[in-house]
């Protein structure tokens, strides 16, 4: 089987705009809200969402940061190679804010669990929501669900979903890679 394009550049742009409108509907002027992108891949989506929100709302800036979850993951010492961290840059306290966590793909839910754990080092938020571009349905290991979903995908474990961005990969698209023959 060949890789399947789940979203092309145009569809992705429409989806991003829709997600932003949903966020504006719930968060209004974002005065009590903060956006946190999860490292390493969620930050690309978060950047695009923030860019689009600023364009749509005309707000000068939003509270936005990147969060690395490496030290909170539950698979430390369970992988052949060690997990190496990315940077965290959150220059605000999330105490009493409505936090929107952003990741590209929701799969087992373990990264989000680690993300929520890591986030609590920056205060106690009033409410936490989750935004993902791709929700891989029926593959959860933990009871985690997203509040805002770009596209729901039915996939089997051996398949792989890759979200690519113009800024880092040259093109905006989402690809579903089939199981490799040796698996």
């Amino acid at each position: 089987m060949k890789p399947v394009q789940v979203l092309n550049s145009e569809q992705l742009s429409i989806t991003l705009t829709r997600l932003c409108h949903q966020l504006i509907e719930r968060h209004g002027d974002f005065s009590q809200s903060a956006i946190i992108g999860l490292q390493p891949r969620g930050v690309f989506l978060a950047e695009r969402i923030v860019e689009k929100l600023i364009e749509l709302t005309g707000l000068p800036r939003l509270r936005y940061g990147n969060l690395d979850i490496t030290f909170h993951r539950d698979d430390f010492r369970r992988k052949a190679s060690p997990i190496l961290p990315s940077t965290t840059d959150i220059d605000f306290q999330i105490e009493e804010l409505d936090v929107i966590l952003i990741d590209d793909v929701l799969y087992t839910g373990r990264s989000i669990r680690a993300g929520m754990d890591a986030m609590l080092a920056f205060g106690r938020p009033r409410r936490v929501e989750l935004l993902v571009l791709i929700d891989r349905r029926f593959s959860r290991h933990l009871p985690v669900q997203a509040d805002y979903i770009g596209r729901t995908v039915d996939s089997i474990t051996s398949e792989r979903v890759s979200v690519q961005w113009k800024s880092s990969d040259g093109q905006d698209q989402v690809i579903l890679h089939p199981a490799s023959p040796e698996q």
Binding site: F71, F76, P85, T87, T88, D117, A121, F122
Partner: peptide, 20 residues
Amino acid sequence: FETADNFKEVINRPIKKVPS
């Protein structure tokens, strides 16, 4: 050194602890 950069950020947080 690269890992220490990340921990330096951690120890400047309000909660300076990670569960690794």
